[in-house]
Structures are given as C-alpha cells and as structure tokens.
Design a binder for these strands. Structure first.
Lengths: 127, 127
DNA sequence: ATTATTGTATTAACTACTTAATACAATAAT
DNA sequence: ATTATTGTATTAAGTAGTTAATACAATAAT
C-alpha cells in the first residue's frame, strides 16, 4: 500500500510528493539505497518513464542522487532532510489555515475543530 | 482576484472547489443569481466550455440550478449549504492531520505547531 | 573480457483537458 | 412577433501526461 494516486493530478507530481513524505518521515533514511527505477515503477503500477521523470526532479531538488550504475540514493545531507520536514509541515499548516479561513471558520473555531477531531481520533492504533 | 488556478490540476475541478468555498462561506448566498456562463468564463480567463463543465457538475451535486433563460442560481436549500460547509471543514481537518502524520509529527507536535502558527498570524488584518 | 544491472534517451501512440468557433434551444424583454 | 440573453451542444484543433517499445551508456559483478 506504499503508493496511491488520484486521477486528477499528474502521477509524476504525486510520486514526488510521496517520496518527499517518505524522506521527511524517515521511512527512507538519509543515504539509503533505492530500488531500481524499473522496479519502483512496477511496484507503483506506472510506466518506468513516469517514475524516471519524478526522480529526475527529485535530483534537481538535491533530495536524491544517482550513480550510474550502482543505483540511486537518498541524499546524505541530514540537514536537508530536516529542512524538508519543516517545510512540508509549514506548508501543511499554512494551507490548512487558509482553507479553514476560506470556508468561513475563524481562528477559535478552527482550533476547536482540530482539538475535537484529535480527541475523537485518540483511540487510533498509531499515535 | 476572485479566481486563481494552478497548473497541475484540471481547471474545471478547481472551479468546482472554489465555487464550493464561495457557497460554504456565504460569499455567494443561498438563492443568489450567478452571472452568465460566458461572463464568469471571461472573469476567470477560461473558455466558456470549461466554465460550463464545472457548473454542470455543481448542478449534479444539487448546489446550483439553472433556469433557461433566466440564468443560474445557488441552491435555496440552506441546510445543504450548511452541510457543505461542515463537510469541507471536516475534510480539511482530516487531510491536514493525515499530512502531519505522514510527515512524521505526532498529535502533540501538530497542536503545538498550529497554535504557534495562529499566534504568529495574530496581527493579520482579517480574523 | 563478458555479462548483467542500472540510469538515461527517443519515438510513437493514446487519452484527457482546454480552447475555439459555431450553432441550437428556450424564454424574458421589447 | 421580434430580439436579446441565457443555457446547452457539437466539432475540430492544440497541449500535456502517460504508456509502450526500444535502444544506448556506464559500470559492478562474473
């Protein structure tokens, strides 16, 4: 269940986003070797070209690097990984608050809703 | 500045989303008449067909209705509007918490970040 | 040296979204 | 009755993402 895509956005964009999440969360660790493009493409159920395209952008961002032919690896720069994590979180918060504002909820109501929702999810198995 | 689109999702989808926000927030009120399709298309800078497509889906959802030729109107069902608002908020909260979890933040850290962010935004002009 | 594995590039076809131009359908306004 | 306004439908062309098939490039493994 590693990969899942919706239908109204480019797949390669979603691969980039999900890889960023995997890197930020430590599911893929700094310096870790990745499976081959063809293999990841098969796992994800997409064409190798599509997977390749996603990774070529992740390389431009410096988050992964490729050594022909030993394979592809997550960056070894743990500062970059930490920075990525903070950026993703910051963007998640920003866009959430923006959405709530546009829907018509003020700060107090937003805090109220999120705390209530977290309480209700308190018995979830993970965190 | 009413409409704004990004480039990696279908425009008609984004129109639907933004219209839902306008309806939920009361920017467009229940029963209110909408501008003509051609006019809205011009304002948004898109083709009339694209605008039409978005509204035909909003009609399927029951959020608007069209009277040829008097124009198109927001639903008069205020319960539906209220329900829409709650659904949008619920989805925003759900996806936010999911994102934070995938990035690797636990409940406590998530609450901490959002409260901190709201404090920092406390001097904003609106809400 | 040869082979297998890996990343990378190329070309063609297919699909969905968007635009453009135009026409038709219904009815409110005159 | 005529006209203008509105929603709606149709057809063709353009663009971007995806798939498919294939080939090339570099090097680790043998």
């Amino acid at each position: 269940m590693k990969w899942s895509f919706d239908h109204d956005r480019p797949i390669y964009t979603q691969i980039i986003e999900q890889m960023k999440l995997f890197i930020a969360s430590g599911e893929y660790r700094a310096g870790e070797k990745l499976p081959a493009v063809r293999e990841m493409a098969q796992e994800a159920g997409v064409n190798p070209n599509t997977m390749q395209r996603a990774f070529s952008e992740l390389e431009n961002a410096g988050l992964v690097f490729a050594n022909r032919t030993s394979g592809r690896f997550i960056t070894e720069d743990i500062n970059m990984v930490e920075k990525l994590k903070e950026e993703l979180a910051s963007e998640a918060v920003r866009s959430f608050l923006d959405s709530m504002k546009r829907i018509g909820y003020d700060k107090a109501k937003t805090i109220e809703l999120i705390e209530k929702s977290i309480e209700e999810r308190g018995d979830d198995k993970d965190e």
